[in-house]
């Protein structure tokens, strides 16, 4: 989104100060002839390809140990094999479920808490310090404890995800609900709007950009939480798969799983931005309250 806002650099502005398309302007008066501008993604792709080639050469020529870096071709082989025998699909499925279920619970509970706090200053005053205190605790550190309480199954992973993801939802939504555009509020009052009408037509919509900023963070945190929980205590999932691959010194496999996780994370982010653009179509980007 911000990409589009920053795009028109001075180079792209022609002599009249108007935005010209990225093509050469030929003829049309003196000195307006310019070169074709290579799009950014070409360079990005070149860097990726360059790194892949470098990795391949480094491993093939023994510049680095095969036990430390996997060659791109071996990763590719591992990926193909893993997907054809269903190992990956199974692990992805498990991680996906705990990530998504945890995310949804965190989103619902976080927003519910935010609404309660926005409605009652008293409730906020009492609860918020507890939330902050809890947030200061590194969640990874309590993951083992949660496994002890809840067990080795998927519910412990979901719980960890919820605990990690609920905070960004809560603080961002609360921030959004605290906003009150004075004049929109007074306009509503002058029409005799009830508190509920004001909440529905003014406060909720105004808070949405903040709600989404929180949700986008929470999506990323959810994946983080799911993998953390799997590292600590699970029998299935991408995190577990990676631990197993590492234990059997399967370096290409470890890299392949990392790649899957990366795609997973990017997909989550893209889906969230897609929904966000649809719902808060009117809003420019909001600064996120980070944790």
């Amino acid at each position: 989104m911000s990409e589009q806002l920053t795009r028109p650099s001075s180079e792209e502005l022609d002599a009249t100060g108007l935005l010209s398309p990225g093509h050469a302007v030929i003829g049309e008066g003196p000195a307006v002839r310019r070169r074709f501008r290579v799009p950014d993604w070409v360079y990005t792709t070149l860097i990726v390809v360059g790194l892949l080639v470098l990795g391949q050469l480094a491993v093939d020529h023994g510049w680095v140990s095969k036990l430390m870096v996997a060659s791109p071709t071996s990763v590719w082989v591992e990926l193909k094999q893993g997907f054809s025998n269903g190992i990956y699909l199974h692990a992805i499925n498990r991680t996906l479920v705990s990530t998504l279920v945890g995310f949804v619970i965190a989103a619902v509970a976080g927003n519910l808490l935010a609404v309660l706090m926005a409605m009652s200053g008293r409730f906020e005053g009492i609860i918020f310090p507890l939330v902050v205190a809890f947030q200061s605790l590194p969640k990874v550190a309590i993951a083992p404890l949660i496994v002890i309480w809840v067990g080795f199954g998927i519910s412990s992973q979901i719980l960890v995800v919820v605990l990690v993801a609920i905070f960004p939802v809560l603080v961002n939504s609360l921030q959004g609900l605290r906003l009150r555009d004075r004049e929109q509020y007074e306009l509503s009052k002058s029409l005799g709007a009830s508190a509920w009408q004001i909440a529905r037509w003014v406060r909720f919509p105004a808070s949405l950009p903040y709600v989404f900023a929180g949700l986008r963070l929470a999506a990323v945190f959810s994946l983080l939480g799911a993998i953390t929980a799997e590292f600590v205590g699970s029998s299935e999932g991408l995190g577990v798969l990676m631990l197993q691959q590492r234990a059997s010194l399967n370096v290409p496999g470890t890299f392949a799983t990392l790649l899957v996780l990366m795609v997973f994370g990017v997909a989550l982010n893209e889906i969230m931005s897609f929904i966000e653009r649809r719902v808060v179509y009117w809003s420019r980007e909001v600064t996120t309250l980070n944790v």
Partner: peptide, 11 residues
Amino acid sequence: MVFQTAALMPW
């Protein structure tokens, strides 16, 4: 009421 600022709802 017509306010000094337009006070429209951007959404």
